[in-house]
């Protein structure tokens, strides 16, 4: 009995060290915060259009459990955001090659700057919502730019990525999910 008591500190340490090892070897990047919205329907927020010739979007533009629609990617971007520029070619390619609609959510931006940005880099978005005050992005739970959400046919958010998209991530995380959603639908 007494001996076991003396083994206790060692035992506790092994458990703690095990957690550390697990975190180091398999753990997520501690900075990435999983979205609370995964599995939930998209927010109700209505977003006015950025461009005169392209609509904004709101709850009705996504499917719902009663009326399923095609899955959608929502890409949060801004002209002041450097990483957004870096990921833009990949977003464009996704929209073209995977025949999935991508909605743009332009946040905390100046309308003219955003329009210029899209003119220079190309506009792959099917619809673009404009949120100059940055209020709607709070409903989406955005905390960094860019962010990308995958919404399924029933209008539920199934995946979120914070930070720029890049080929490896698209290949690993995004495409399998998009294809699975399309297979279902």
């Amino acid at each position: 009995m007494k001996r076991i008591l003396f083994l206790l500190p060692l035992g506790l340490f092994i458990i703690v060290a095990g957690y550390f090892a697990w975190q180091l070897l398999y753990g997520r990047d501690p900075r990435i915060i999983p979205s609370a919205l995964i599995g939930n329907p998209v927010p109700e927020t209505e977003l006015p259009p950025l461009k005169d010739d392209k609509p904004g979007f709101g709850r009705a533009d996504f499917g719902s459990p009663d009326a399923e629609k095609a899955p959608v990617l929502v890409n949060v971007f801004a002209s002041w955001c450097g990483p957004c520029r870096a990921e833009h070619p990949f977003v464009t390619a996704l929209a073209k090659q995977e025949s999935i609609e991508v909605y743009g959510l332009n946040a905390k931006d100046n309308r003219q700057a955003a329009l210029d940005w899209l003119r220079d880099l190309g506009d792959p978005y099917a619809k673009i919502g404009f949120d100059p005050q940055g209020k709607a992005v709070l409903d989406w739970g955005v905390y960094g730019y860019p962010e990308t959400y995958l919404v399924n046919g029933r209008g539920e958010i199934v995946f979120k990525h914070v930070g720029p998209l890049y080929p490896d991530l698209i290949e690993r995380e995004l495409l399998p999910r998009i294809r699975a959603l399309k297979g279902e639908g």
Partner: peptide, 9 residues
């Protein structure tokens, strides 16, 4: 963090 994502000005 900004290397990874951008924070609003």
């Amino acid at each position: 963090f900004a290397l990874l994502i951008a924070l609003a000005p």
